[in-house]
């Protein structure tokens, strides 16, 4: 455990003393600060219009759907591109700079290496999600916010980003080049949203059910509406474990290759 925390602290410090991380955070806030007030404005206008016309669907009159969920979907889009940027150097750089030799000749297991790095990456992601949370939090000054549902929706995004982190760490472990790792990771992040699409073309109800279960958007949509299902938690945990395991295997493989 000491060794996991040593690796975790070292990687976290690596993020925090690296200006790139702050640049990424800064750019994310620029985008959010541009889009969020616009969304809020549109919502305010719709509320005014509601007084005159009654055909507007009810969901659009709920701040959770009309503002917060859109905010989350932009955040998700950003995470698809940002998580690979944070994760790309974690293993690739070690390979390139030959510092991997140090890790592999130290009395640490491959699992400890992967867990330490994964946790540091998750903390960095949490910082970005925390920044995004500030927007709805400050909205509460002049609007009524349902905190529990908002929290669960953010939990959903956090779980999705945990899956990104797992996949992207795996991508980083595969290659020496940070660029290749980045591109691969973005493709993984985008691709996972399209797995569930298979449900549209299969005929058998069983296959459709399977596709529905492995569809990321299906699981996320229930979370953002404020429903936590055990199946969903298990699904996310499985994905994280799967890619964590694959990364561990790749790290271990450098011992016998």
């Amino acid at each position: 455990m000491d060794k996991v925390s040593a690796i975790f602290q070292k990687e976290l410090r690596g993020f925090l003393i690296n200006p790139n991380f702050f640049m990424v955070c800064g750019l994310c806030t620029v985008i959010m600060s541009w889009i969020y007030p616009i969304q809020l404005n549109i919502f305010a206008q719709e509320l005014q219009n509601y007084v005159y016309q009654t055909q507007i669907p009810k969901q659009q009159l709920n701040i959770h759907y009309a503002v917060f969920l859109r905010h989350l979907s932009y955040l998700n889009l950003m995470l698809i591109l940002v998580v690979p940027a944070l994760s790309m150097r974690l293993f690739s750089e070690e390979r390139k700079m030959r510092t991997f030799d140090l890790l592999l000749t130290s009395p640490v297991t491959s699992a400890q290496i992967v867990i330490g790095k994964y946790l540091a990456l998750m903390v960095a992601i949490l910082v970005i999600i925390g920044l995004a949370f500030l927007y709805p939090a400050f909205t509460s000054i002049f609007a009524k916010v349902n905190w529990l549902i908002l929290g669960i929706a953010f939990l959903g995004i956090f779980l999705v980003s945990a899956v990104y982190a797992g996949m992207n760490l795996f991508c980083s472990s595969l290659t020496e080049s940070a660029i290749v790792s980045y591109v691969m990771a973005v493709i993984f992040n985008v691709a996972i949203w399209f797995v569930g699409i298979g449900g549209e073309i299969v005929d058998s109800p069983l296959a459709r059910k399977i596709f529905e279960h492995i569809s990321l958007s299906q699981h996320l949509s229930s979370l953002v509406e404020g429903t936590i299902r055990t199946g969903t938690l298990v699904f996310f945990a499985t994905l994280v474990f799967l890619f964590g395991f694959l990364s561990e295997r790749v790290v271990e493989s450098s011992r016998w290759r």
Binding site: D2, K3, A6, I7, M97, T99, L102, L103, P107, V108
Partner: peptide, 23 residues
């Protein structure tokens, strides 16, 4: 190793401390 396994973005002292922790 042939190429010393050094992290460029670390201070000498912190680096040695990290290695000691790993070991």
């Amino acid at each position: 190793p042939e190429t010393p396994p050094l992290y460029n973005d670390m201070y000498v002292q912190d680096y040695l401390r990290y290695v000691a922790q790993l070991k």
